[in-house]
Amino acid sequence: MNTIATPTLLDYPFPEPPAPGAAVTLAPGLLWMRLALPLALDHVNIYAIEDGDGWFIWDAGMGDSPSLEAWETLLNGPLAGRPVTRLLVTHHHPDHVGAAGWLCGRTGAELLMVKSEFLLSRVRIGGLFKDTDTADRQFYRERGLYDEAADGILGRGPIYIDTVGTLPAAYRSIKAGDVLTIGGRDWHVRTGGGHSDEMAMLWQPDQRVFLAADQVMEKITPNIGVWPHEPDARPLDDFLTSLAAIRDEIPDDTLILPGHKLPFRGLHQRIAELEAHHAKICAKIMKACDAGPASIGDLIPKLFNRELPPHHAGLAFAETLAHVNSLIEQGDLIHDTEADGMMRLHRTDA
């Protein structure tokens, strides 16, 4: 996640986050809770919607011991008196899916996920990318990422396995266009790419509430990255297309409930800020290439004004390549392998 320094005039109707083990009532039958994360982004938002005699839960948090203990506190606190009947997990990242298997086992809840996100979780839990380690290292080396940073990003596989519990054997697949009846109201499933393949979102037009997951958040933008298994992917294009579709459908005064940070109103302004942020990064990349051919690794210190630890340098690489691939598709850059085996970028107008 990257911080966007652009001044913002968003409206924050709930400026104080919920305390550990407590909930904030956003509307009748709609609760906001938080779970701590052992990361720089130190929390994930969890939402609960009254659903008849039970609770519909939005996201599960990480599957580590502190999160499971926090869930016990919530189940015996603000969620007490109603069973958890359904759990919708937005995407396969561990801070959202990690505790899903445990929570479903603890409560008997049905798991709902987009099929691609469910299968990605299964693939990563199974460690099925281990057999590509050599090729993945070559991918990073050819594009100028130093070995320690490559080690930092490739070494995340075991962390995923440690923080994501076994998923239920069966789940309910959801997709864009589905309508879920929750608490007697129709909630419309939407999906968006970029940060994840098909992140689930929910839109309730009567109450004007949009569960946006990590697709639209205040102050930060989700990591939009390219990974070794799909080197020519264009997740930034997918992300910007998703933002345009959200702006076209969701009114500006809707209450946005994000996966991290605070709920807010001012959706269209926030989308404009996100679009401007990524356009600025693309402009910086083009300017950096003025001096001549550059690898992706060469670009990182020109885009990030601070020293990055190895894992963060790996994420910065993924984000930089995402912007580069969009510029290649637009015809602004060419990515060629040179005589020394390194891939470098050239401006097409040079």
Rank of each mutant, 00 (worst) to 15 (best):
Leu9Met: 03
Asp253Met: 07
Thr163Tyr: 06
Asp136Lys: 05
Ile57Val: 00
Ser67Phe: 06
Asn45Arg: 01
Gly105Arg: 14
Asp136Asn: 06
Ala22Arg: 02
Pro94His: 06
Ala213Trp: 08
Ser196Arg: 10
Glu249Val: 13
Gly105Pro: 02
Trp71Gln: 09
Ala350Lys: 03
Thr221Trp: 04
Ala48Gln: 07
Leu321Glu: 15
Asp51Gln: 11
Lys175Gln: 15
Asp248Arg: 14
Ile300Phe: 08
Arg86Ile: 00
His260Ile: 07
Met199Gly: 13
Pro38Ile: 09
Asn2Lys: 11
Ala316Thr: 08
Asp349Glu: 15
Asp253His: 07
Phe139Tyr: 05
Leu120Arg: 12
Glu142Leu: 06
Gly155Val: 07
Ser67Leu: 09
Gly144His: 11
Asp336Arg: 01
Gly21Glu: 03
Arg190Phe: 00
Leu88Lys: 09
Ala291Asp: 14
Gly297Asn: 02
Gly126Gln: 11
Leu211Tyr: 11
Asp298Lys: 13
Ile161Tyr: 08
Gly101Val: 00
Val97Phe: 10
Glu329Gln: 05
Phe129Thr: 13
Glu50Arg: 08
Gly21Cys: 04
Gly184Arg: 15
Glu72Phe: 05
Pro17Ala: 09
Ala313Ile: 04
Ile296Gly: 01
Gly193Leu: 08
Met342Asn: 15
Ile271Pro: 02
Asp206Asn: 09
Gly52Asn: 00
Thr73Asp: 04
Ile334His: 08
Gly54Pro: 02
Leu180Gln: 03
Gln330Asn: 06
Val164Leu: 07
Asp232Phe: 05
Pro20Asn: 00
Thr241Ser: 15
Ile281Ser: 09
Ala19Lys: 13
Trp102Val: 03
Ser196Val: 13
Pro15Gly: 03
Ile182Val: 12
Phe239Gly: 07
Phe14Asn: 14
Ala80Glu: 02
Ala313Leu: 06
Gly165Trp: 14
Arg265Phe: 01
Glu110His: 09
His195Ser: 13
Asp206His: 10
Met33Arg: 06
Asp238Cys: 11
Leu145Val: 08
Ala170Lys: 07
Asp349Leu: 10
Tyr47Asp: 08
Gln269Glu: 13
